[in-house]
Structures are given as C-alpha cells and as structure tokens.
Amino acid sequence: MPRKPRLAVFKFASCDGCQLSLLDAEDELLAICDRVEIAHFAEASSDLQPGPYDVALVEGSITTEEDAARIRRVRADSKFLMTIGACATAGGIQSLRNWGQIDEWVQSVYPSPEFIRTLATSSAIADHVLVDFALHGCPINHHQLVDILVALAEGRQPRVPSHSVCLDCKHRGTVCHVVARGIPCLGPVTQSGCGAICPAYDRGCYGCFGPSQPANTTSLVSQFRIHGHSPEKLVPLLRSFNAAAPEFQHASEQLVILRPSNEGCRS
C-alpha cells in the first residue's frame, strides 16, 4: 500500500473558519485521518512536523512582509498547494484596504500605529506563489474539502463544480428574487458551492464563493442599474469578501466611475 499523503495546514490573515471546516467534518474526520497523515495543523495538534508535505492547505491572505516571505517557504516545502477560502483565493474582506489609505486606517484602529507593520494591500496567495488548486468560499464547503482530500489521497484530479449559484436555486426550487422582487442578487455570477442558501433564506446572494466561470458581472450590473439600483448600493455588494477577485473588482470600479462624486467610494 502506498504511504499516506502528508497534509499541512497554514494560516495567514484570516478568521480560521476555513481550516475549522476540516474539524467540522465530524462524521468524516477520524476516517480522513486514516487516509492522510496530518503532519502540520497547529489549530488541531501540538505535533508539528517539518516538511516536505504532499498537500498544503493555505488559509488567509498576505498582508505583511513576513507573510510574503513565509508563503514562499510554504510553497518550497509543498508538492501540491491548495488555497482554501476567499481570503487565500482573492484577498478576503481585508482587501478593502486596497481602496483606502492604509496609514489612516491603522490610525483609526490602533492608538499606537507605529507598532503596526502591515502592507497597504491584502493580496491573494496566487499573487505570490504558484497555486495548484483554489477552493472558493467564505467559508469553504467542508464536503467539497473532504472530496478533494479523498481525490488527492487516491491520486485523482480534484474537481468542484464551477457553475453559478443561479442554477442551484433552480434545483432547490427557490423563487428568483431578482425576477420576483427586483432585489440585486449576485447568484448569476457567483460560483456554486454554498447550496444557494441566501436566496432560500429570502435574501440576495452576496457573492461569498467568488466569481463563477465565466461571470458576466458587467452585464448583470447593467441590469441592476436598469432596475433602478444605485452605485451606492451596488459597489458595497460587489466589494465584500471577494472584492479583489478580478470579475468583481472590475465591475465595482466601473460603477465608481459612473458616480457623480467619488466620495465614499471606499465602501
């Protein structure tokens, strides 16, 4: 029998929720540990083994010089590097700083800003190193994570569906909020994976799984404008957990240009 793949989990700027998803696989956790060797997972184990690793799960975005250097070391130690979640894949909610003044932001939060060393941007892992696979979501879906780990343990190519949330609503039989209520919903341009929960709970999708492939965000936003939704409403919708994903960033920046004044365009 071939040896078990060695798994490592690394955290950068994030909330911990995506790596917690592995521990949230309550029914599968002990069985997964039979299939893969957990070599480095600080949140779950004090037994931290050095690399090299077969699979590295990377959570969080790069916001400091130290982390920019650390991700290169992680890459060098890892055969297959997979980002888990919106922070690692697109920069996360903290990428809103990319549109702000970092010095002023730090001053507004910390009384002694001179002790804070942080970059002016929050960037995706793929901006720094080669990423072999990106798992979307804020947070990721733990069933998708388990499927991928099993695929890797068996030497199969990992796959997740890339269609939009829209299709999942049709499968669930959820009435379309855009058509029926005229509310803006990012379901048509957001990748599947959450189970289309927001529309099923009577609210529009806020895009936490990031852009689907392909995603015609510009066209969707034009439709929302025809329905009478203002850029003041649509810019924050596009600029949230995947604000710096190119398909969402481009559409939000087009909207800012349309505004009579750029006041508040940070939002």
């Binding site: 950068f12 996360g92 909610i93 809103l96 932001w105």
Partner: peptide, 10 residues
C-alpha cells in the same frame, strides 16, 4: 496580522 475591521466598516 491586523485586518482592520473597524476601519473597513466605515
């Protein structure tokens, strides 16, 4: 690393 939530909410 700080993520500056109070600033990004404004």
């Amino acid at each position: 690393p700080p993520r500056l939530f109070e600033a990004l909410l404004r």
